[in-house]
Write a protein that binds this DNA or RNA. Structure first.
Lengths: 154, 154
DNA sequence: TTGATATTCATACTTTGGTATGAGTGAAAA
DNA sequence: TTTTCACTCATACCAAAGTATGAATATCAA
């Protein structure tokens, strides 16, 4: 993946140089000052750099999560329910009292993705709501026990 | 902080243009091809863009953490929170994973009433969502980690 | 009696949560 | 290489949650 990114990056750079070079001889861009060139290039590659960094941050998050994957699996293995690392993170976010929007911001993913993960999580836990997911996850030992007294409601 | 970043960024850009301009007339950089300029600028501003994006992502995370801390402090500030009996029952129902409708059916009250109790509960706990109410109630010790204390609730 | 509090309920409205569907990507296994 | 799985994202739509406002009743203390 990184190779692909670098490759595309190189192509973009080369293309830009080529286009400018071509425009240089074909048109009157020579009339512009060198500063104009530099400004344009600076802006474009600032954007590219920003995008590159953002992509790297996202992939870093992935790798970080993967390291905790084994842990999650080890926990949930006992209960025959296999939660993916993302689903586990949804559960933790919900337990923190975060909204879907906030969970997405925390993990640098969109609201849509959070909702998708939640849906899959709820199917696996066989629940309909996030609060229900919490209580069930605690029953299953996926989340630490806090509320066992809920049956006392009358 | 963002303003600071943008300011530094603008300075860097201006400085680069100035330096190149100066070097252009003082030395023999004209001998270099325009591609060399572009490549240099592209690389530098790619780095700057990447750094910028990384900073922004980090500042987001920081802000998130800060808000959480303020929340925690706010919790310890309010020592005595008196929940009414109904509000406590709302809390337990929520912890059980029940919907507002289900809580109402269980307590033989209307959905409207449940919502009203919830609103009052959320104001007292200074939260916005039911899941947040859960986590905060646990921090406050209102929702206990053991069964014994739950008897006191009833 | 008056005031404070808790409880109940409703209506209208906004926000958030959740479902359904479809689709694209990347990594790893078969 | 193809398949499988986890992850990502979007759009549309429906359900639930939450807010705001107003109001009625009952209890208890001042």
């Amino acid at each position: 993946m990184k190779i692909k990114v670098i490759f595309l990056y190189a192509i973009a750079l080369g293309a830009l140089v080529f286009i400018l070079n071509w425009a240089d001889y074909k048109f009157y861009i020579r009339d512009f000052k060198i500063e104009s060139y530099l400004l344009l290039v600076a802006l474009i590659f600032t954007g590219l750099g920003a995008w590159l960094a953002y992509s790297l941050v996202n992939s870093k998050s992935k790798k970080y999560v993967q390291s905790s994957r084994k842990l999650s699996h080890a926990i949930s293995d006992h209960k025959e329910i296999q939660l993916s690392e993302r689903e586990m993170e949804m559960l933790l976010g919900i337990a923190e009292g975060l909204s879907n929007q906030q969970i997405g911001e925390k993990l640098h993913i969109s609201l849509s993705t959070v909702k998708t993960h939640n849906s899959n999580l709820f199917v696996k836990l066989d629940v309909k709501r996030r609060t229900q997911a919490l209580s069930k996850a605690k029953e299953l030992g996926i989340l630490s026990h806090s509320i066992e007294e809920s049956h006392l409601i009358r």
